[in-house]
Design a protein around this nucleic acid. Structure first.
Lengths: 147, 147
DNA sequence: ATACCAAGTGGGAAAAAGTGGGAAATCGGT
DNA sequence: ACCGATTTCCCACTTTTTCCCACTTGGTAT
């Protein structure tokens, strides 16, 4: 399971270290996509298979109109990249993804269970503060839905 | 069963001793997360599995399609850590969790049945005073709800 | 009272993780 | 094919983390 928060630098070559604790689970290649909420999503190849089959299956109960779904898929697939992890655990962030979320020198690398997220570190900490306040009611809300 | 209150120091390396009486039950690795009410929760791996599978059931839904789910997962997983207990029973508290509840030199380590909580010791003793006074009426309230 | 044992605390040395940069390889354009 | 620019690979430095050992304290048994 991918969990925890790490603040890592992005060097002039657009490299970011994956936390040592993530490396085994991530494997040698990962898929990086523009995520939701101004961060990037990183999936293991295995997770990506699940995600992509699920997204492209128009018969599922995803609450999208089909046109919407096509556009969403363009968003998720069209700008996804397969990226290798180098021998000491770093990945290269494509420029267009870096620009999208305003990354500069420092990134927050977050394990969110089945995926990793990359945030501008400032945006992450602001966002975390907001979510922290909401957490109890979110917990309750989700708890009710799951029944 | 994890019970009792212990005041332990946090050294400059962010280490805290788990009470000797907890060690057997905690095992070799634990999960530490931001809890509710400005303390940290420590779960055994077994407890954590129960908690985390209930939170993110990725087999039925993609965990990132709903905004609430994303935010809650960021909170629960993003700010959690898997931590080893060292050979003499200490754990390392990640900086971001230490900061969150304002830990400095001294922490209250509390057994709460199936989990351990870490408190700023001052906050804990204040909180304990308040709860002590409320205890009778809390008991009554819970008694009514349980019917 | 004293010696012993268990629990908690502190710190030094070794190992690992993260960061930076140079050299080799690749790509693209002329 | 050649040149310059970009990317990839590898090595080296620095900082952080981990591991291990030793000291201290408080309780217990002799």
């Amino acid at each position: 399971m991918l969990i925890g928060e790490y603040i890592h630098t992005i060097d002039e070559k657009n490299r970011v270290s994956m936390p040592a604790k993530f490396r085994k689970e991530l494997g040698k290649k990962i898929i990086i996509t523009p995520g939701l909420d101004s961060c990037l999503f990183i999936f293991t190849l295995k997770e990506w298979e699940k995600v992509s089959t699920r997204l492209s299956d128009t018969n599922t109960d995803l609450s999208f109109l089909k046109a919407d779904q096509r556009n969403f898929n363009r968003y998720m697939f069209g700008r996804a990249a397969e990226v290798e992890i180098d021998s000491i655990g770093r990945i290269l962030i494509p420029d267009f993804l870096k620009d999208r979320i305003g990354l500069k020198n420092s990134a927050a690398v977050i394990g969110v269970g089945d995926r990793v997220e990359i945030w501008n570190d400032k945006v992450w900490s602001q966002n975390a503060d907001v979510v922290e306040k909401q957490a109890p009611e979110l917990a309750e809300k989700l708890g009710n839905e799951k029944k």
